[in-house]
Design a protein around this nucleic acid. Structure first.
Lengths: 221, 221
DNA sequence: ACCTGAACACCGTTCAAGT
DNA sequence: ACCTGAACACCGTTCAAGT
C-alpha cells in the first residue's frame, strides 16, 4: 500500500490519470455505468470527490479517457497484409472493436457517449481506412466505409449489452414481443420471432458485418 | 403499469400520459436531454414533480413513451409494394427512421436509451421484415437484416446528432483530428480527412445504407 | 503541490396529507 | 381521484483552507 518515496518535489500524489481511469473501469465492471459516480470513484481511491477534478476537468473527460483506454490494441487486430485479404482484415478490426466494448460492462454506452481523439481511437480509424485504401478503394469510399462499419458495430453492441442487462429482463421484453406478435397485428414479426428473440448476438453481428463487406465488394466492382 | 384510467370521478385531471409526453418532447427540443428533468417538466406543466409519478412509474418509462411517440408513422414509409422494389422500400423505412430521430433534439440518444415495445416500434419492425420476406428472403435473414439496418441507422444518427451539438464544437474535434492526422502518425486518416470531416451526413448515411442493401442483394443470390 | 471539508445548486423518487 | 409539500438519499462541481 505505502508507495516508496518518489524523487518528486513535495508529497507524492496518491492520484494520477492512469490509476484513476483503471479504477473507474474496475468500478464500471463491478457496478455498471449508472453506479459510476465521482463520489463512489473517489471512495474507491480513498480520496474526496473534489480531488478528482485536479486530473479530469469534468466527469465527461474521465469517461472519454475510459473509452479511449477500452479500445487499446484494437488497431493492431487487422494483422499483417500478407496473411489475409482486405475483407477479412476489415472484419477482424470490426470484431476487435466489438470485443473491446463487450469486455467492459456498459462499454458500448461509455464509448457511444464520448468522442475520443486519442491514439487508440485514431489508430483504429487509421488502420481500417488503411486496409481499404490499400485494397484499391478511394479515399472517400474508405472514409465512408469506416463510418458505416464503426456506427454499425457500436449500434449493435449497444443493443447487445442492453439486452444482457438483468433489469431489462430479456424475458419480459421477449414476452411482450411474443404476446404482441402472436396477437395478429404483426404477422411478419410473428414469423421471424425465433430469430428476433435469439440471443446469439455473434451471429447477428456477423450477418450485418457480412452485408457491409459484401456491399463494399460490390462498390469496388 | 397502473394507469389511472377511470373516466373522471372527482376533479378532471390536469395531467395525462399523452399531454405529458408531448410537453416532454417540446422541452427536449428546446433544451436537450440533459436538461430534461422531472422537476423542469413538472414546472412546464404547472405541477409538482411528484405528480408525474401517477402517470409514469419512472423517468425511464417516460423516456420510453417519448421514444415510441417519436417513431410514429415510420412504419408506413415503405409505401405500396407496386410502386418500388424491395430495396427501395427498405431504404425508405431506414430513411424515415433516421428522419424521425433527427426531428427531435437528442432523438437518437433517447431512442437508443430505451426499449419500446409499442405499436410504432413494432410496426416499423414488422414493416421492414415484411418487405424482405415478400422479396423472398428467409425469416431468419429478414430478422437479421432488420437488426443490421436498425442498428446502423441508430448508430449513425447518434453520431450525427452528437456532431451537431454546439458544445461538441465540431471545429475543436475537426481541429484535433487535423492536427493529429497531419502530424504523420496517421497517414490514412490524413488522406481521407476531407471526407472524414465532411458534414454531409446524408451522404454518409446513404453510403452505409447502400452497403447493407447491396450486401442483402448478394445474400439472396 | 495535493488534498480536505464544506458548500452550492441541483437530481429521481416516495408518501402522508390535503382537497 | 388527483395533486401538494416536504422529505430522503443522493448527484457534479467549486474553492478556500490546510499540510
Amino acid at each position: 500500500m505505502s508507495t516508496p518515496s518518489s524523487p518528486t518535489r513535495g508529497r507524492p500524489a496518491r492520484l494520477n490519470q492512469a490509476r484513476t481511469v483503471q479504477t473507474a473501469l474496475d468500478l464500471l465492471n463491478e457496478s455498471g455505468l449508472d453506479a459510476l459516480t465521482m463520489r463512489r470513484l473517489a471512495d474507491a481511491m480513498d480520496v474526496q470527490a473534489g480531488a478528482l477534478y485536479r486530473y479530469f476537468a469534468t466527469k465527461q473527460d474521465l469517461l472519454t479517457a475510459m473509452a479511449e483506454r477500452m479500445v487499446g490494441g484494437v488497431a493492431e487486430a487487422a494483422g499483417p497484409a500478407e496473411d489475409s485479404d482486405w475483407s477479412e482484415r476489415a472484419a477482424r478490426l470490426a470484431r476487435a472493436l466489438r470485443a473491446a466494448l463487450l469486455a467492459h460492462r456498459d462499454g458500448a454506452r461509455v464509448y457511444a457517449g464520448t468522442h475520443s481523439t486519442g491514439p487508440n481511437t485514431l489508430g483504429f480509424a487509421d488502420s481500417l481506412t488503411g486496409v481499404l485504401r490499400e485494397a484499391g478503394f478511394s479515399d472517400a469510399e474508405a472514409a465512408r466505409a469506416l463510418y458505416a462499419v464503426a456506427n454499425f458495430t457500436v449500434g449493435h453492441t449497444l443493443e447487445e449489452q442492453a439486452a444482457l442487462q438483468p433489469e431489462n429482463n430479456g424475458s419480459a421484453d421477449a414476452g411482450n414481443l411474443h404476446e404482441a406478435a402472436t396477437a395478429g397485428a404483426y404477422p411478419h414479426l410473428a414469423a421471424t420471432l425465433p430469430t428476433l428473440t435469439s440471443t446469439d448476438f455473434t451471429a447477428h453481428f456477423e450477418f450485418g458485418l457480412r452485408l457491409l463487406l459484401d456491399g463494399l465488394r460490390a462498390v469496388r466492382q
